[in-house]
C-alpha cells in the first residue's frame, strides 16, 4: 500500500496544479462528501474509546457516566502485560530487521541496473496482495515440517515478511529523493563504499529509515491474521484481544485496550508520515 502512499506524498510535493483547472468552489458538494467519507472511516472506531469510558458493563446507549475503572482493570491484568511485552519484543525485532532488509533492497533497486529488476520487485511486493491466510498456513506448515515450535520467533518471521515490502518502498522513495551525485562525489574523492554509505547515504536516508522503523513496528504491533496461525503459548496483543472477545464481562476492558492501541498507532503513524513527507518537502526546497 505504501507504494501509493509514497507516490502520493511525492506527487503532492511536486505537482503544481494550474489554478484554471481548480474550477468550482472549494466548499462545494464534494467537500461535504469528503467530510462524510472521513466520518465513515473514523466514527466506527471512535466508539471504542467512547464506551471504554462508560460506566456500564454493557456496550449500549444511553451512556451511564464517566469512569476510568476499565483502564484500571485493563492495567491490572497479567495476561495483558505479558502480551504487551511480547508485542513490544516482536515489534522491535521486526522493525529493525525489516528496515535493514529494506535498506539493502532499496539501495540495490535505486543505485544499480541489473536484469529482472521488475520481476524481483514484484516478488518482494507479493505479501501485499497474497491473502494473509495463505501466508499464515504456509508458514505454519513450514514451521512444523522443520520440527520447530510455534513461538514469538515464528510470529516475528511472518511479520518481517509483511513489513519488508513497506520498508523497501518507503526507502526507495527516500533514496530516489536525494541527489545521487553526492554519493558519487564521495566515491570519486576516495572514500570507500562502506564509508560513503555511513557518511553520505545513511544521514540523507535517515528520515526514511526512522519512518520505516515506525511503520514496520506498527505493522507488526497491529497484525492479527498471520499471528493467529503462528502463535504458540505466548500471545501478542491482538491475539490476546481475540482470546478475550469470548468473555462478555471482559468487553469493557478490551475496549479500553483497543482505545489505547488505536491512539498509540495513530500517534506512531502520524509521526512517521509527517517525518517522511517533511523529508520530501525539505528535498524539494533544497533542489530549487
Amino acid at each position: 500500500m505504501s507504494i501509493v502512499a509514497s507516490k502520493a506524498a511525492k506527487s503532492a510535493a511536486h505537482v503544481h496544479v494550474p489554478s484554471s483547472i481548480m474550477e468550482g468552489r472549494p466548499y462545494g458538494g464534494l467537500f461535504f462528501y469528503a467530510v462524510f467519507y472521513l466520518s465513515f472511516i473514523y466514527i466506527p472506531v471512535l466508539f471504542l474509546p467512547l464506551f471504554s469510558f462508560n460506566d456500564s458493563i454493557y456496550i449500549a446507549f444511553p451512556l451511564k457516566g464517566f469512569t476510568t475503572k476499565w483502564y484500571g482493570e485493563m492495567a491490572a491484568s497479567n495476561g495483558l502485560i505479558e502480551a504487551l511485552k511480547n508485542s513490544l519484543k516482536v515489534g522491535t525485532a521486526v522493525c529493525i530487521i525489516s528496515t535493514i532488509f529494506g535498506v539493502l533492497a532499496a539501495k540495490a533497486m535505486t543505485r544499480y541496473r541489473f536484469p529482472a529488476k521488475g520481476p524481483i520487485t514484484g516478488l518482494i511486493m507479493l505479501p501485499f496482495v497474497v491473502p494473509g491466510i495463505i501466508l499464515g498456513i504456509a508458514l505454519l506448515i513450514l514451521t512444523y515440517s522443520m520440527g520447530m515450535e510455534l513461538s514469538l520467533f515464528t510470529i516475528a518471521v511472518s511479520h518481517v515478511l509483511l513489513a519488508v515490502p513497506f520498508s523497501m518502498l518507503v526507502l526507495i522513495s527516500r533514496m530516489e529523493g536525494f541527489d545521487k551525485n553526492l554519493e558519487e562525489a564521495s566515491l570519486d574523492l576516495g572514500e570507500g563504499p562502506w564509508r560513503t554509505f555511513w557518511q553520505v547515504t545513511f544521514p540523507l536516508t535517515l528520515p526514511g529509515i526512522v519512518a520505516s522503523l515506525l511503520l514496520c513496528f506498527s505493522v507488526s504491533f497491529d497484525e492479527f491474521i498471520l499471528a493467529f496461525f503462528l502463535s504458540g503459548n505466548e500471545a501478542t496483543l491482538p491475539i490476546y484481544i481475540w482470546s478475550q472477545l469470548r468473555f462478555p464481562s471482559k468487553l469493557p476492558s478490551v475496549l479500553a485496550l483497543g482505545a489505547c492501541i488505536f491512539v498509540f498507532s495513530c500517534v506512531l503513524v502520524t509521526f512517521s508520515e509527517w517525518l517522511r513527507r517533511r523529508g520530501v518537502q525539505v528535498k524539494t526546497a533544497s533542489s530549487v
Partner: peptide, 18 residues
C-alpha cells in the same frame, strides 16, 4: 493525505471489532 493514510495502518482486528 495523512488523515486518510492513518486508518489503514491501524489494527484491522479493532476495526472489525468496532
Amino acid at each position: 493525505l495523512i488523515l486518510i493514510t492513518v486508518p489503514f495502518w491501524t489494527s484491522f482486528l479493532l476495526r472489525v471489532f468496532a
